[in-house]
Amino acid sequence: MRTFKNLPKGPKTALIAFLVGSVITIAVQIGYELFLERHEMPSELVGIVLPKPRGVSSFQLLDHNGQTFNLERLQGKWTFMFFGYTHCPDVCPTTMGLLSDVFKRLKEQHPQALEQSQGVFVSVDPKRDTKAALKDFVPYFNKEFLGITGDEEQIQKFAKGLGVGFKLSEPEKDGSYAISHTSAIYLMDPRGRFYALFQSQFHDANRIVDMFLKILDLNAK
């Protein structure tokens, strides 16, 4: 049998050279394509806007009014989306408060941008977050915001498609539990595709409004 080890020295060197050469060529090509793709992008948006919007597969969830929430509901608007749960005292109300500030600023200063936007809170805790619980929690931050819940399996599927992670902690004696979850805000484009990601270090209302306006600009061209 001729394995790599048994090859004479000459072909061995040639093979290594060929492999190294291929890797370098591919790396340069990927780098160049990324460069081209981001070429038009304002520098503030690099690392926030995805190189290419990513489509999500179909899903079937429920909004806090009991209406179906599926891909169609993401069409025609930019959707700011946050994944959390109502038993979360710190990160979730902080982030929802931030989104509330973002929408307030849009309403006051950029009503045209507001018209194209919606805010959505997706529960990662469907067991406790009923429609009623969400109806009470979510509109508190903005009357127009929608709370989304549904089958655990559908939520898992939707979250996974976006790379959203969440994990239940070991329940305490009284049955209460906390959930670790992604703290980023997801921006979906009006075609329902995952477009940009605001990670927690960018969670500043003015900054998000500025970035969003730049995104609208970029898409108006």
């Binding site: 979360c88 990160v91 902690s169 979850h181 992604t182 703290s183 927690s200």
Partner: peptide, 13 residues
């Protein structure tokens, strides 16, 4: 008393 700890943008209490 709790601390929110961020690991890779995952928040854990």
């Amino acid at each position: 008393l709790h601390e929110t700890v961020m690991t890779d943008d995952m928040a854990t209490m």
